[in-house]
């Protein structure tokens, strides 16, 4: 069984009410998204990126142990 730590920022952290949580048994980024949309339906209506180990996800990947997964709403620095 694998277990991934997900960290959330900005409006996503605010809406889910926490900055980190864990998801179990997600083998791929497709599975990750399905689980996220299922658990937090508001994500389907929000624009956000997923970063795996600080790299924005560009194509679907197989997830590995100990990767840092982050949910990033649109950036608004400056």
């Amino acid at each position: 069984m694998n277990r991934h730590k997900i960290i959330a920022f900005g409006i996503i952290a605010e809406k889910i009410g926490k900055t980190e949580f864990y998801l179990e048994n997600i083998a791929t980024t497709q599975a990750l998204k399905e689980k996220l949309y299922n658990q937090y339906p508001f994500l389907q209506t929000l624009t956000f990126s997923i970063a795996i180990d600080h790299e924005i996800l560009q194509e679907e990947l197989t997830l590995e142990e100990n990767q840092e997964i982050a949910l990033l709403p649109p950036f608004s620095g400056g």
């Binding site: 920022f9 900005g10 409006i11 982050a70 709403p73 950036f75 608004s76 620095g77 400056g78």
Partner: peptide, 14 residues
């Protein structure tokens, strides 16, 4: 550089 910071850097303002 300013444009890149606004577009590419994970910072959020409330």
């Amino acid at each position: 550089i300013v444009e890149s910071i606004k577009k590419e850097v994970p910072i959020w303002g409330r």
